[in-house]
Amino acid sequence: MEALAGASGDALGSSPVHRLDPRAKCVVTVLFVVAVTSFGRYDVSRLMPFVLYPVAIATLSGVSAGSVAARTLAAAPFILLVGLFNPFFDRQVIVRIGGLAVTGGWMSFLSIAVRSFLAVSAAVLLVLTTRFDLLCAGLRKMCLPRVFVTQLEFLHRYIGLLAGEAQRMVRAHDLRSNGNRPKLALVVYAPMIGLLLLRALDRATRVHRAMKARLFDGEIRVLRPLAFSRSDFLFILAWGGYFLVCRFADVPGLLSGLAGVR
């Protein structure tokens, strides 16, 4: 849950990146992810120019690089699990660096790791630099079904609360188990989850009453004007152009050519 609290803290900043229209940031994030994931399976160096995007956004927004990295690495296990099979199944040597023969499998594994880091960091930066309510306002304007956006808002609102209830239940159980902490047996676990569920249902009833008391009629209304300004347009244009160039021109190749490396 620290993830949520931390994110909402960072998202309250007021850097130029924070002030951009959430729609512009969404568009650029999607372009970035598509560009990064569209490379061939052995591409590593071609992905490098894309590192500029998370680096620049993190720096300009003042979000700490550590918090971006920590969140990004949370995604690592599944990728490692699947990616690590590549070196075993793909043993053809495709490049030799000095005496070291690198197989396609290792190359593609490295590529998977890099693209994972890039793609996830873009999503992480989006939420770290955008207030969730404004992000939802943007999604509403971008024609997502209203009921779904409202659902996102309510979910986001009550996650911390229910997580707190869950934590207190587990702590109460731990305190009664004499310090040695056995994992919950199913006979303890199921009623605990059941109780959590009943409390959630009660909570929903009370929230519904509070909404009705203030004349809720099934429609959630909000006033969150978003203004798409010229800087938003430029933001999309500049990054979109950069991604396009790096996707279709071999920037690292050109650079090494300039440096005379053979």
């Binding site: 808002e153 309510f154 009550y158 229910l162 997580a163 869950a166 056995p182 919950l184 959630a200 929903a204």
Partner: peptide
């Protein structure tokens, strides 16, 4: 059914919270 709005939201949060508790 206007009671569904808070119900869906809170139950979504419940799924999150429940996923924090592990059993053996």
């Amino acid at each position: 059914d206007d009671s569904r709005v808070p119900l869906m939201g809170v139950l979504g949060a419940f799924v999150f919270a429940a996923q924090m508790i592990n059993f053996s």
